[in-house]
Design a protein around this nucleic acid. Structure first.
Length: 744
DNA sequence: TTTAGGG
DNA sequence: CCCTAAA
């Protein structure tokens, strides 16, 4: 798919050296950048290992190996959520930190990679048994849900972070948009040293290793100043396994935009080369750690399992079969273990906020917000989410066994790429970092407080929520920060990211366009191409209520004033309307299409656009005249459409004029009378609009024309046909009028 | 439901 | 490309 090409190639800046040639994907050929620095190579390999060899974590890990995992970064949600009575541990590796931290589990499928990456220290790569998945267990079970193990204190409802993981099928209504949802990204951009980027629905496997079961690939890209891990998973075009749409709401959004035409120009981020010795040091540190564990049980089928995290007082389970989504909810008390709620707003369900299933927050207030993909479902903060199902997660047979679907939420075998990334960063940086919270530009001084206590309410704009990577209190100074004071990346606009100071460390799990913006120009290749669709994305303006809220909350202090040692902050910015009100991708007409259009119009005239469409673009889906009817409420729409119902209906439903068709839309439609409701693809007018522009183009001077030049011959035909049919229409009108007059 | 036309 | 009115 084009989208994948963009992503994959775009991230290919370096071909992982350790990958056996035989296993190299042919797709990885281009844009390969050689790297000569052996030290960087090592770091690169380490990062590969980090991403490629996902740590297996489950309950057992939490209990047994948790102590070994020093430097685990607590997720922000937890940080915010943490009980006040519990002092913030300086060392997050205390017992129980596993529960507070992100839990990562992953299936490692390519042990050789690890062996290579840490060629001389593979012995350090020992760890819990990996989760082996059965390629068909998911389908057999028809459901899957994974949770990251995490402590969730439910006493305080206000601070709960809800993370839901909705596994929605690719069946009914996903046909047109499935591809759009296939990739998400998590990224940690250490502009000063490394960048790790992971795609959602990615198997964190060795670079460019073909994935046995879902064609997912990961790529590690390294340049002089960055190391990026791109993890991507191709959608399952054949439906061989449940391709499940998941929206990593906070961490990974934007994929829709990728397919729907939001393009974001590539902004280049200047980064600085990591000193070789630093890399070497980090590498040694990493090697010495027991972070990276080889999964002895991994097999070809074993791959990534991911999970999202959240806190909430209730847990939602969504089980999915290929074409059916079963959901059930139950109180968290039903679970023997604490866990975070996986929060997933189905990206189809852009509009939902208020759907009955209650997955998304703010039912009626702000549809856009719901659709924006915040992980802050109700009030929680999600640093990183990862969708296991999106990757066709297979849980190990031995684990799944005869378990009921509900038991699939067992955290074993799951992991968050975010965690992986964070761990990688932690390992590289030597730990001692923590995630800080910045809300509306103010540092949350005491992030042990709950969101509510901090003054962050459900209604607050999430744009202002950001995270900082800062040294943990135990450390006197930031490991890498050249300066001791915090740096905040406003990121209200893309530019700030591009202007990141050299020493800034960005932890970003937000939308892809932001990720791209943060990308340094490491390869100068396809970046602009694969971010093409993000161009429509733009940051939301700062929340006007910032001051008010800030004043109301003493827990917040201006970031600029705080003396913390945050390295950077990346706000959880609300995406532009692109997220919710999908703007179609711009698809310029080719000369060939123009020719077809002209021909059709010449034949049929200017008043029969439906026929013109069928004649000239019948096979062009994106030019198709398609309308989606809601005549049957039980019917799921199958593609994106624009709301063309009565304005009053729009108002009553809160649906925008252009709305992503989704189950949630349907849910909402059920609430009202929709006698004439319908969704229409605006493409129906493409021919008309194009003709309109063609006529205009033909009438202006060639110097004024833009875009792909249309042959003058065609333009002449346009004018001729237009004149002819306009005359015909005029005649018809005259004739009609005269007939009417005669009748009278 | 489709067309037409303004933005 | 978006939106709406109107046929």
């Amino acid at each position: 798919m084009e989208f994948h090409k963009r992503l994959d190639y775009g991230f290919i800046g370096y071909q992982v050296p350790h990958i056996p040639r035989a296993t190299r994907s042919a797709r990885g050929r281009g844009n390969i950048r050689k790297k000569s620095d052996s030290n960087e190579m090592c770091a690169f390999d380490l990062l590969t290992t980090v991403a490629g060899k996902l740590l297996l974590e489950g309950e057992s890990t939490s209990n047994s190996s948790g102590k070994d995992r020093s430097g685990v970064v607590k997720d922000t949600a937890e940080t915010v959520k943490e009980d006040e009575d519990t002092p913030l541990k300086e060392n997050p590796c205390n017992e129980g930190c596993q529960e507070r931290g992100f839990f990562i589990s992953q299936i490692v499928s390519e042990a050789p990679v690890v062996n290579h990456c840490l060629s001389k220290s593979t012995d350090t790569l020992s760890g819990p048994a990996s989760v082996i998945t059965s390629s068909d267990c998911l389908e057999k079970l028809g459901s899957a849900e994974q949770f990251i193990n995490g402590e969730c204190k439910t006493e305080n409802r206000n601070c709960s972070t809800k993370v839901e993981h909705e596994l929605s099928g690719c069946g009914d209504f996903s046909s047109c948009t499935l591809g759009a949802e296939t990739k998400k990204q998590l990224k940690i951009n250490l502009s000063n040293d490394a960048t790790i980027t992971t795609n959602k629905r990615a198997a964190i496997c060795s670079s460019e290793f073909p994935d046995p079961w879902d064609r997912k690939r990961s790529m590690l890209v390294a340049s002089d100043n960055t190391v990026k891990l791109s993890l991507s998973t191709d959608p399952d075009p054949f439906g061989s396994f449940p391709v499940i749409r998941n929206d990593v709401q906070l961490a990974n959004k934007d994929d829709d935009e990728k397919s729907w035409g939001c393009t974001q120009p590539s902004t280049r981020n200047k980064t600085f080369k990591l000193a070789p010795r630093v890399v070497d040091w980090r590498m040694r540190k990493l090697q010495a750690s027991k972070y990276w564990e080889v999964n002895p049980q991994s097999d070809d089928e074993g791959h990534v399992n991911v999970a999202s995290i959240s806190l909430d007082n209730e847990t939602r389970h969504v089980y999915q079969k290929r074409e059916n989504v079963y959901t059930s909810e139950r109180s968290q008390r039903d679970f023997p273990f604490k866990k975070r709620k996986l929060y997933y707003c189905n990206s189809f369900s852009n509009s939902d906020g208020g759907s009955s299933d209650g997955i998304c927050s703010s039912p009626t207030k702000d549809l856009n917000r719901d659709a924006s993909g915040y992980t802050l479902a109700s009030s929680g903060v999600l640093i990183g989410t990862y969708s296991p199902s999106a990757y066709g997660i297979r849980l190990p047979v031995q684990q799944l066994g005869r378990q009921s679907p509900k038991e699939l939420v067992h955290p074993s075998g799951l992991m968050t790429p975010m965690r992986t990334v964070m761990e990688a960063v932690m390992a590289i940086l030597g730990g001692g970092l923590r995630i800080g919270v910045v809300f509306q530009g103010k540092k949350v001084r005491d992030d042990r407080k709950t969101l509510f206590q901090t003054g962050i309410s459900h209604d607050d704009k999430l744009d202002a929520l950001g995270f900082t990577l800062e040294p943990s209190p135990s450390r006197g100074s930031p490991p890498l920060g050249p300066e001791g004071r915090s740096r905040v990346l406003p990121c209200e606009t893309p530019q700030p990211l591009t202007r990141c100071s050299p020493g800034s460390t960005i932890i970003h799990n937000g939308m892809q366009q932001e990720t791209y913006n943060a990308f340094p120009d490491y390869s100068g290749t396809n970046l602009s191409n694969f971010i093409e669709s993000d161009h429509d994305s733009a940051p939301s303006p700062p929340d006007a209520s910032l001051e008010k809220n800030a004043a109301d909350s003493r827990a917040l202090v201006p970031v600029a004033a705080m003396d913390a040692e945050a390295l950077a902050v990346v706000p959880m910015r609300k995406p532009k309307r692109c997220e919710t009100v999908q703007r179609r991708i711009r698809r310029p007409f080719s000369v060939f299409e123009v020719e077809a259009l002209v021909q059709a119009v010449e034949k049929l005239g200017t008043g029969r656009w439906r026929d013109v469409k069928m004649r000239a673009f019948d096979n062009a889906k994106h030019r198709t005249y398609v309308d989606l009817k809601f005549g049957c409420l039980g019917k799921e729409p199958t593609c994106l459409g624009a709301w063309h119902g009565p304005t009053s209906f729009k108002k009553s439903t809160g649906l925008g004029p252009v709305q992503l068709v989704s189950k949630r839309v349907r849910v909402r439609l059920n609430l009202v009378t929709i006698s004439s409701a319908r969704l229409v693809l605006l493409d129906q007018c493409s021919g008309l609009d194009k003709w309109k522009t063609l006529v205009h183009t033909a009438r202006i001077s060639p110097q004024q024309r833009r875009g792909e030049p249309v042959p003058q011959e065609l333009l002449d035909r346009v004018l001729i046909a237009h004149a002819y049919w306009s005359q015909q229409q005029a005649r018809q009108q005259m004739k009609h009028q005269s007939e009417t007059r005669l009748l009278l």
